[in-house]
């Protein structure tokens, strides 16, 4: 599904990713952990195609296709989805209108007509139910005045609507209380299949209790310095990151 080879990226001339190698196969869940500032969000943005990040070296392959030249929306059309750590507000644009536009633009890129309103409504209803989202919520302006938890739930709602191939969840658990965490994780699990893949970026074990990863990677200083299975996450939870920093330093 996703293959990243020796990826170096910088922003404003400052090197942030310094040689990332990662392979994610269909059906897999990968967790990326690591201290603040190590480059997790940057990696997510580079995969999604944010323009201010300069790829200096290396490759990103999506289903064997180099996506370097593709614009962010083209990557989205190919099934890349990013649940943002800090979702932005778009005043005056309702959640419903936004997701409708996103779906129809994606369909348009594939030469399809707009989704019939009836189907759209049905789908919205189903997915809102899955994530226990109130109907009223859907008519509010996108992320405007949303609590931290509402923003994250809205991100996963959009993911559910867009049915991506590769979903990257950037600290989706932060700002969620335990109930919301369970609902969101449950939603993600329901959407998982052998044809798609999920990358979960998190600091905490608690999300990984619900969304169980096949692999866990530690990102530090722009590199993946350790990879393992879910036990690694437990170890990090217990011991923190200092031992990793020491290992790398050594």
């Amino acid at each position: 599904m996703l293959e990243i080879k020796d990826l170096h990226a910088s922003v404003e001339g400052k090197g942030i990713l310094r040689g990332i190698n990662l392979e994610v196969k269909a059906g897999e869940v990968h967790a990326i952990m690591g201290p603040n500032g190590s480059g997790k969000s940057t990696l997510a943005s580079v995969i999604a195609g944010k323009e201010e990040y300069e790829v200096e070296k290396g490759q990103i392959l999506l289903n064997d296709e180099d996506i370097e030249e593709l614009a962010a929306e083209e990557r989205a059309h190919k099934g890349v989805f990013l649940s943002f750590q800090y979702p932005v507000e778009i005043p005056g644009v309702s959640v419903t209108n936004f997701i409708k536009t996103a779906i129809n633009e994606t369909r348009k890129s594939k030469g399809l007509d707009d989704m019939p309103a009836k189907d759209m409504l049905k789908m919205i209803r189903e997915k809102a139910e899955l994530l226990e989202i109130d109907r009223k919520f859907l008519s509010r302006s996108l992320n405007e005045g949303f609590s931290g938890g509402e923003k994250k739930r809205n991100e996963i709602f959009q993911m559910a609507m867009l049915e991506p191939k590769l979903a990257i969840l950037d600290e989706t658990d932060s700002g969620l209380d335990i109930d919301a965490l369970r609902i969101v994780a449950n939603g993600v699990n329901k959407l998982k299949s052998k044809d798609n893949a999920v990358i979960v970026i998190t600091h905490y074990q608690r999300l990984l209790d619900h969304i169980v990863p096949d692999f866990v990677h530690v990102l530090y200083n722009g590199r993946i310095v350790k990879s393992g299975t879910k036990e690694l996450a437990h170890e990090l939870e217990e011991k923190g990151y200092d031992w990793i920093k020491e290992e790398v330093g050594a």
Partner: peptide, 18 residues
């Protein structure tokens, strides 16, 4: 804001309109 829209498959022109 534009990148957020782009990421959801909405191109820049449409994003501005939105």
């Amino acid at each position: 804001q534009i990148f957020y829209c782009n990421q959801r498959g909405i191109d820049t022109e449409k994003a501005i309109a939105l």
